[in-house]
Amino acid sequence: QLWTVEEQKKLEQLLIKYPPEEVESRRWQKIADELGNRTAKQVASRVQKYFIKLTKAGIPVPGR
């Protein structure tokens, strides 16, 4: 299922709330739990694509 604008905005906020961890899967699980309707795997996939998009555009990656 496609990500809504609201989900993307919340994801961006949660990336700041939950900074990078030694075991990133824990971070994705915390974010997924707060989103409520996404799995950690879906979050990880979305974040990877989002970070690539930001990097290509020369925009700083949130939480890094």
Rank of each mutant, 00 (worst) to 15 (best):
L2S: 07
T4N: 06
T4I: 02
V5I: 09
V5D: 05
Q8Y: 03
Q8E: 11
Q8A: 09
Q8R: 04
Q8F: 03
Q8I: 09
Q8S: 08
K9T: 14
K9L: 07
K9C: 01
K9G: 08
K9I: 07
K9N: 06
K9E: 12
K10V: 05
K10S: 10
K10W: 03
K10T: 07
K10Y: 05
L11N: 00
L11H: 02
L11G: 00
E12R: 05
E12Y: 04
E12F: 04
E12D: 11
E12N: 07
E12W: 02
Q13W: 12
Q13P: 01
Q13L: 12
Q13S: 11
Q13G: 14
Q13F: 09
Q13R: 14
L14R: 01
L14T: 01
L14M: 08
L14N: 02
L14V: 01
L15E: 00
L15A: 02
L15V: 06
L15C: 04
L15Q: 00
L15P: 01
L15M: 12
L15R: 00
L15H: 00
I16N: 11
I16L: 10
I16H: 08
I16S: 09
I16Q: 11
I16M: 15
I16Y: 12
I16A: 15
K17P: 00
K17D: 08
K17M: 10
K17H: 03
K17T: 07
K17F: 02
K17N: 03
K17L: 07
K17S: 05
Y18F: 09
Y18N: 03
Y18G: 01
Y18L: 02
Y18K: 00
Y18S: 02
Y18V: 04
Y18C: 02
Y18T: 02
P19S: 06
P19W: 04
P19H: 04
P19V: 06
P19E: 09
P19T: 04
P19A: 12
P20L: 05
P20H: 13
P20R: 08
E21T: 08
E21G: 06
E21M: 07
E21F: 02
E21Q: 06
E21H: 04
E22M: 14
E22V: 10
E22I: 09
E22H: 10
E22F: 05
E22Q: 11
E22A: 10
E22S: 09
E22G: 08
E22P: 14
V23N: 10
V23E: 13
V23D: 13
V23M: 15
V23R: 08
V23F: 06
E24G: 04
E24Y: 04
E24K: 05
E24P: 09
E24N: 07
E24C: 07
E24W: 03
S25P: 09
S25I: 11
S25F: 13
S25L: 08
S25E: 15
S25N: 10
S25Y: 12
S25V: 12
R26T: 13
R26K: 10
R26Q: 14
R26Y: 09
R26A: 14
R26E: 13
R26W: 09
R26L: 15
R26V: 13
R27D: 02
R27V: 01
R27K: 01
R27T: 03
R27H: 03
R27C: 02
W28N: 01
W28I: 03
W28L: 04
W28K: 02
W28P: 00
W28A: 02
Q29T: 10
Q29S: 08
Q29L: 06
Q29I: 06
Q29W: 05
K30V: 04
K30F: 08
K30I: 04
K30C: 04
K30D: 02
K30L: 05
I31H: 00
I31D: 00
I31Q: 00
I31A: 01
I31R: 01
A32P: 00
A32W: 01
A32Y: 01
A32G: 03
A32M: 01
A32D: 00
D33T: 09
D33F: 10
D33G: 07
D33V: 07
D33M: 08
D33A: 08
D33K: 07
E34Q: 06
E34A: 09
E34C: 07
E34G: 05
E34K: 09
L35P: 01
L35M: 11
L35F: 09
L35V: 02
L35E: 01
G36W: 05
G36Q: 13
G36Y: 05
N37T: 13
N37E: 09
N37C: 07
N37P: 05
R38Q: 06
R38F: 07
R38K: 14
R38L: 07
R38D: 00
T39L: 02
T39W: 02
T39G: 04
T39Q: 02
T39A: 02
A40T: 12
A40R: 04
A40I: 04
A40F: 04
K41C: 11
K41F: 06
K41Q: 12
K41H: 12
K41E: 15
K41P: 11
K41A: 13
K41M: 10
K41D: 12
K41S: 13
K41T: 13
Q42I: 02
Q42V: 04
Q42R: 01
Q42G: 04
Q42P: 00
Q42L: 02
Q42A: 10
Q42H: 05
Q42S: 08
Q42W: 04
Q42D: 15
V43F: 01
V43T: 01
V43R: 00
V43P: 01
V43S: 00
V43G: 01
A44V: 05
A44H: 12
A44S: 10
A44M: 11
A44Q: 13
A44G: 07
A44C: 11
A44K: 12
A44E: 14
A44D: 04
A44I: 05
S45P: 07
R46V: 11
R46D: 06
V47T: 06
V47F: 04
V47G: 03
V47M: 06
V47I: 05
V47R: 00
Q48I: 06
Q48N: 08
Q48S: 10
Q48C: 06
Q48W: 06
Q48E: 12
K49N: 13
K49C: 06
K49W: 10
K49F: 03
K49V: 03
K49A: 10
K49T: 13
K49H: 08
Y50P: 11
Y50K: 11
Y50G: 14
Y50M: 12
Y50V: 13
F51M: 14
F51C: 15
F51N: 14
F51D: 15
F51W: 11
F51G: 15
F51Y: 09
F51H: 13
I52R: 14
I52A: 15
I52L: 13
I52H: 15
I52K: 13
I52F: 15
K53M: 06
K53H: 13
K53D: 12
K53C: 06
K53V: 04
K53I: 03
K53Q: 13
L54N: 15
L54Y: 08
L54A: 15
T55E: 15
T55Q: 14
T55Y: 05
T55H: 10
T55K: 12
T55R: 13
T55G: 12
T55N: 11
T55W: 05
K56H: 10
K56Q: 12
K56C: 04
K56I: 03
K56M: 07
K56V: 03
A57Y: 05
A57L: 11
G58T: 06
G58Q: 14
G58M: 08
G58V: 07
G58I: 06
I59C: 15
I59T: 13
I59M: 14
I59H: 14
P60S: 11
P60C: 07
P60G: 12
P60N: 12
P60F: 05
P60I: 05
P60E: 11
P60T: 08
P60D: 13
P60Q: 10
P60M: 06
P60K: 06
V61T: 14
V61C: 15
V61L: 11
V61D: 14
P62L: 09
P62R: 09
P62F: 05
P62Q: 14
G63C: 15
G63L: 03
G63D: 14
G63N: 10
G63S: 09
G63V: 09
R64P: 15
R64F: 13
R64S: 12
R64E: 15
R64L: 14
